[in-house]
Amino acid sequence: MLNIFLQQLINALTYGSLIGFIALGYSLVYGILKLINFAHGHIVTFAIFITMSMLTQFLALHTLGFILALSLALIITIGVTIVLEIVAYRPLRRSNRLSLIVSALGAGMVIENAVMLIWGPNPRVFPDINFFQGTINLNGVVVSELNLFILFLNIVVMSILYLFINKSRTGIAIKALSLDYQTAQLMGVNINKIIVLVFVLGAILGSAGGILIGLTYKTISFNMGFEYGLKAFIAAIIGGIGSIPGAMLGGLIIGILQTLSAGYISSIWANVITYSLLILLLIVRPRGLLGQKDIEKV
């Protein structure tokens, strides 16, 4: 019985981590621009497809090929993200929030359709890699090497991100910008550089989540970004949008609620149970679990 519970918990944490990686992108951008970047889920889809293409090209080179494919895919995804920020968001930075949101939605549709036109409308299969194929049996609890890597990466990424935001000069600039846009600019913070950096960070974390989704579930499609993006967006809200640990916590909570509902009550009712509980949680704590109250400045 305990074995089954532990197995469900591992299922939940790995699934939640994948959502959490994508949710980080929403939270990071919102923290700075107060923008819900609805194109983020589609950037993740783009990252998955470009990685698939690169892996298909270079996988014959084994580990070196994997690193090469991943690096090239990441560089291209970063390039697309930078173009997106410059073309779709920067010109609207001083306009009202609604224009930015509409621009984000439009950008998302452009990316989704571009993925469909480039890779086709049919589901594709993500290539196999030569490592993370084994499983470890811990007294009846079976954990795949890939799942262990996901959990390990989660801890590493969160630690690095925490140190980067709180200890590095650039991280402190990001925090300053999120607190007060204009004052940070007066203090010499290059806001264009920082905003691009935040978009790029979000894209890298989302790409990591997307690639792990591809490796885990194998089947990918051009419109998958919408569903994952929506779940990640909800995770970011639950955790407290703008909060980095909150985004990951939100992802893990969604993973736990969905998995335990499906495992112990009914898979049919998993979504109903999960999202009903999340609505209750938001009623009790509207700013999310780790969200901070905005201080009204006079």
């Binding site: 089954i4 197995q7 969905q258 998995t259 335990l260 499906a262 495992g263 112990y264």
Partner: peptide, 20 residues
């Protein structure tokens, strides 16, 4: 007997339940 939702891709929760 159970149902899954077409379009989902993580069925580990229901499979773990079945494993028991």
């Amino acid at each position: 007997t159970g149902k899954i939702t077409s379009g989902d891709n993580d069925f580990r929760a229901i499979l773990t339940k079945i494993k028991a």
